[in-house]
Design a protein around this nucleic acid. Structure first.
Length: 735
DNA sequence: AGCACGCCGACT
DNA sequence: GTCGGCGTGCTC
């Protein structure tokens, strides 16, 4: 490519995860001309030390102010490409996460970014030519100054690569060699373990299962007793006579018209729909990305996809549980050697050669969003998938019987909807009216359980542990103390006061219900273990327990547990004793979650669904029992609109921990900044910790809300923040 | 004065 | 992420 005389310049984001280091400018030397573009992974020095970075922009000479150092090399194998860089920049801005941290997610897992290759024997001859050595080892041997010099003079060069155990390395016994006398005990033991496993086994799993250390295996390899070999990753291969393509009409429309689509399908159908989309995209020559909330979902979808793959095609599963070969799979997708990737949220950043379709299963599931701050970008996969599909020109299909309101509200222009299937079965629904009792479990609910189990029916009692308790409810009429300003339930602060988690307004706790004058006010609170023991006592029989972590007496006629494991199977009768915990909880999305829980329970119920509540006529409850999603969405969207909550507004939460003058000044600073960005600030309210303050930012443009939260945060981190801790959460789930 | 330690700011 | 500079506070 022709360009003005002189060297081009590159703006590089070094992969160092901090808000404080901006992208830096480097000169592109002539020898790398044409190889450095937006999205190239490069090696560039910082204080003389080589680092990995990703090119954000390439510009003519003289355009970047301080581009004094040179790009040292290009890492073609690792380059995420321009589309993913655009996605990462968007995500970084939207989630207020340092760009470097987001970009790291596009690189192969288990990448060793500080590995050097020795290119010429070092003066003291300590390292052999061609050896791969960690930066730590080099620094220990040479010291920082000589390492820097060795880099400049070309004795060593940064050679990032994937660690062996991430590349599906197998340990294989070499025939004819058995334990000599000079072997150590650990070596002998590990060798025997390997022989027990048939003489060949994945390295990662072998070390994990035997508890042996890596260097023991290395010694065995050094003695020639064991060979380490990298094998192709485990993939699902197509067959000679694959199943016919599912849902051809709908999937043809999705691929032909492109853009984002929504299809309300029951959970049980979704793997088949994903297989249909993948197979359709494949016949057009495209790769498909399938995103699922949990690892188990990934395995189920993989089976379905495997049945429709034609010969010569392949699919792979990608999640944190895949130890061996995750990096190999990453590489295969990038090179276009595999056709379908089925993974959890980290898969959304895997580079593809020719991405044609993205399918998101169980769209509203909270597991699609990384938890607060840790591991990955705290954005919902829905938003990342929408954005990625737009950037790469792929189709996006979102599946859920009960989509998020964020997605549903965009129906029409932005998101096209496929008509949902006719419903074939729906259980009878009954609401146990808890008004007038202070009971945790109403008599009628217990009676229903007793009768059902005596008739030999299976009974599932589903409770959520999230959001229970600490809300003041009238046992007389079911009224809940609500903040007049925010429309959110007030939580019990202490004996005498209630507090609004939205705006911080503190209200006096009255002994009597303002609605009906009853003096019987109580706090709600229901958890799995309590319900189990109470039910067991009142039914005078064994009751099972089924949660993510515990499984006890599942064969009992009545089982209590949490939604995910409980609703993985069907029950004759399902009881929901605590929808009020969500329905009347303090969170904006509580109503939506309650609706979803009741609806999903109904899908898994064969004959009768019993729900107990103090608000038996609540619109969400009624709509869920009738299986009427559009009716719920209409009511809930109008409520959200009138209070200005998502999806009609974007929120950011800022929690400041500290005390005295610095805290007050920081709060003041955030308030000024939000005014400057023309974003509404609600609060400060008391935060979760004793001396903390909480601010809620609200606006209609997501990037402005993120900027109003992030800019003052970054400014504050650059200056001194004595004893002050600030936490920023974009689109907080707990509001 | 001499030195350990921790906090900042710079690094392109 | 990593280094050097500088201030604080302790010891000889």
């Amino acid at each position: 490519m022709a360009h003005p005389a002189g060297e081009m310049e590159a703006l590089v984001c070094l992969l160092i995860g901090t808000h404080a280091l901006p992208p830096l400018g480097y000169r592109v030397p002539d020898r790398l001309e044409g190889r450095v573009g937006v999205g190239s992974a490069v090696v560039a020095p910082l204080s003389g030390i080589s680092r990995i970075g990703v090119v954000l922009e390439v510009s003519p000479p003289g355009s970047l102010s301080r581009a004094t150092e040179e790009v040292r090399g290009v890492l073609e194998e690792l380059s995420p490409g321009p589309e993913l860089v655009e996605l990462c920049r968007w995500a970084s801005e939207r989630a207020a996460v340092p760009l470097a941290q987001v970009l790291r997610g596009t690189l192969p897992p288990g990448l060793d970014a500080t590995r050097y290759r020795v290119r010429a024997p070092l003066p003291d001859g300590r390292f052999e030519e061609g050896a791969l050595v960690s930066r730590r080892a080099l620094r220990r041997a040479l010291g920082s100054e000589r390492l820097r010099r060795a880099e400049v003079e070309g004795f060593v060069e940064l050679a990032p690569g994937v660690r062996e155990d991430e590349r599906s390395a197998w340990a294989v016994v070499v025939g004819g060699v058995s334990g000599g006398r000079e072997w150590t005990n650990p070596q002998r033991r590990l060798f025997e373990e390997l022989v027990c496993r048939g003489g060949e086994y994945p390295v990662g799993r072998l070390l994990e299962e035997t508890g042996a250390r890596r260097d023991v295996l290395r010694r065995l390899a050094g003695r020639g007793a064991v060979r380490i070999e990298v094998r192709p990753p485990e993939v699902i291969r197509g067959s000679e006579n694959p199943k016919e393509r599912p849902f051809p009409r709908e999937m043809d429309a999705v691929m032909a018209r492109g853009g984002a689509w929504l299809w309300r399908r029951p959970s049980s159908d979704q793997p088949l729909v994903a297989a249909g989309l993948a197979s359709t995209a494949l016949s057009d020559g495209f790769q498909t990305l399938v995103l699922v909330p949990t690892r188990e979902d990934a395995e189920r979808v993989a089976q379905e996809v495997g049945r429709v793959l034609p010969e010569g095609r392949s699919a792979a599963v990608y999640h944190a549980g895949i130890r061996e070969g995750r990096a190999e799979i990453h590489r295969a997708m990038r090179a276009g050697r595999a056709d379908v990737l089925i993974g959890t949220r980290s898969a959304v950043f895997v580079p593809f050669e020719r991405l044609g379709a993205i399918c998101v299963l169980e769209e509203p599931d909270l597991a699609h969003r990384a938890g607060e701050g840790y591991e990955g970008v705290p954005l919902h996969v829905r938003d990342l998938a929408l954005q990625r599909a737009r950037i790469e020109g792929a189709s996006a299909l979102f599946l859920s019987p009960v989509p998020s309101l964020e997605l549903y509200a965009r129906r029409g222009r932005e998101v096209k909807e496929i008509a949902p299937p006719e419903r074939t079965r729906w259980p009878a629904g009954r609401v146990v009216d808890l008004r007038g009792t202070g009971a945790r479990l109403g008599g009628s609910l217990v009676e229903t359980c007793r009768q059902a189990v005596e008739e030999g029916m299976s009974v599932g009692v589903v409770v959520t542990r999230v959001g229970h308790g600490r809300v003041l409810v009238c046992n007389g009429c079911g009224a809940v103390a609500v903040c007049p300003r925010c429309g959110l339930s007030l939580s019990v602060r202490d004996e005498k006061t209630l507090v609004c988690n939205g705006c911080g307004k503190v209200e006096l706790r009255t002994g009597r219900c303002p609605e009906c004058g009853s003096g019987r006010m109580s706090t709600t609170g229901i958890a799995a273990d309590g319900v189990r023991s109470e039910l067991s006592r009142r039914l005078a029989r064994r009751v099972g327990l089924l949660t993510a972590g515990r499984r006890e007496g599942e064969d009992a006629g009545v089982v209590v547990g949490t939604p995910r494991p409980m609703l993985a199977s069907e029950w004759d009768v399902v009881a929901l004793p605590d929808v009020d915990g969500l329905l009347l909880g303090r969170r904006v999305r509580g109503t939506e979650e309650a609706f979803r829980l009741v609806y999903r329970a109904a899908e898994r119920t064969r004959t009768l669904l019993v729900v107990q509540s103090r608000v038996p006529d609540h619109y969400a409850l009624r709509a869920a029992l009738e299986g009427d999603y559009p009716a719920f969405a209409r009511s809930e969207l109008s409520r959200r609109r009138s209070f200005g909550y998502p999806p009609f507004a974007y929120l950011a939460e800022i929690v400041l921990e500290g005390d005295g003058e610095p805290l007050a000044r920081a709060v003041e600073f955030f308030l000024e900044e939000s005014a400057r960005h023309r974003v509404e600030a609600i609060g400060p309210a008391p935060g979760p910790e004793g001396t903390s303050r909480r601010l809620l930012l609200r606006g209609t443009e997501p990037h402005r809300v993120a900027a109003a939260a992030l800019e003052p945060y970054a400014a504050l981190s650059r200056k001194k923040m004595r004893g002050l801790k600030v936490r920023v959460t974009i689109d907080p789930q707990e509001v």
